[in-house]
Every structure is written in C-alpha cells, then in structure tokens.
Amino acid sequence: MKKSKRVVIVDDNIDITEVFADIFELTGNKVVGIGHDGRDALELFLKHKPDFIFIDVMMPVMNGIEALKAIKENEPNAKVIMVTADNSTNTIKELEKLNATAIIFKPFKIEDIINIIEKFED
C-alpha cells in the first residue's frame, strides 16, 4: 500500500486549484493547503512542509518562479512541480536552472498530474 502524500496547490485560477484538489483526494493523497499567489506558496510550504507543491508560473503578488526560488533556498530537496501554459525556451530554462522537480504544461491531462506523483514516490 502506497503512502498518502501531503500536497499544496497554488494557482490564481480557483477552478484549477479545485480540479487539482479533487484529483489528489481521489487518488488517496491529502491536500494540506491551497493558495492563489507566490507568497501563499512560500508560506504554505514553510508551514506544512508538504511532500509535493504544485505552483502556477504566472500569478499576482509573487510569481511562481520567485516562489520556486524562495522555496528551494529554504529546502533544496523540495519537490516543486511547476504548472504553466508558457512553453517558451526561456521559461523552461529558468525553471530547470532553479531545479523544478517537474513541469506540467497547460492544458494538462489528469493522468499527467497523477503520473508526476507516482514518478517521484520515495
């Protein structure tokens, strides 16, 4: 029996956070926090120390790239999955340079999200 994972979801689109939350709950994982900007991402990560955090790249206040950088400074081994519609080379290179665990491109399939968690199981 695989161990349930603790997940934080951060996206400025509330519909997307709800879809992700439903997927994780249905697959036996626990959503421990939902946020809507990069500052939320950092605060929720530090508070909950989740197994995975999913962060949208384009968000208000602090964008996902800034949040990724701040999280990795606090916890270099954090599993941070970035979600973006921007598949430009510059964005991909920046996310790789900051050591994002994985990148999911919008529009995504539900299987993509489930596969990411299974791929990085400890």
Rank of each mutant, 00 (worst) to 15 (best):
M1G: 14
K2T: 14
S4A: 15
K5V: 01
V7A: 02
V10Q: 01
D11L: 02
D12E: 09
T17D: 09
T17Y: 03
V19T: 13
A21C: 12
A21L: 01
A21R: 15
D22C: 07
D22P: 00
I23P: 04
I23C: 04
F24Y: 14
F24E: 04
E25T: 14
L26D: 15
G28Q: 12
N29H: 15
V31A: 02
V31I: 10
V32H: 10
V32N: 09
G33Y: 02
G33K: 00
G35Q: 04
G35K: 08
H36R: 11
D37C: 08
D37H: 15
R39Q: 13
D40Y: 03
A41T: 04
L42C: 08
L42V: 15
L42K: 12
E43W: 00
E43R: 12
L44K: 11
F45Q: 07
F45Y: 15
F45D: 06
L46W: 01
K47F: 03
K47C: 00
K49D: 10
K49E: 13
K49W: 03
D51I: 07
F54T: 10
F54A: 09
F54G: 08
I55C: 13
D56W: 02
M58W: 06
M59R: 00
M59H: 00
P60G: 11
V61K: 13
M62R: 09
M62A: 12
M62F: 07
N63H: 03
I65N: 01
I65D: 08
I65Y: 04
E66R: 07
E66M: 09
E66T: 09
A67P: 07
I71D: 06
I71P: 05
I71H: 05
K72D: 11
E75T: 12
E75Y: 05
P76A: 08
P76F: 08
P76W: 06
K79Y: 05
V80P: 09
V80N: 06
M82C: 11
A85M: 11
D86H: 09
N87M: 03
S88W: 07
S88A: 08
N90K: 12
T91N: 14
T91W: 08
K93S: 11
K93Y: 08
L95Q: 04
L95E: 12
E96S: 06
L98C: 06
A100F: 04
A100L: 07
A100G: 10
T101H: 11
I103E: 12
I103H: 13
I104M: 06
K106G: 02
F108Y: 13
K109D: 14
K109T: 10
E111S: 15
E111T: 13
I113G: 05
I114Y: 05
I114D: 09
N115K: 14
N115W: 01
N115Y: 11
I116S: 13
I117F: 10
E118H: 10
E118K: 10
K119P: 03
E121F: 10
E121V: 04
E121I: 05
D122Y: 08
D122R: 05
D122E: 14
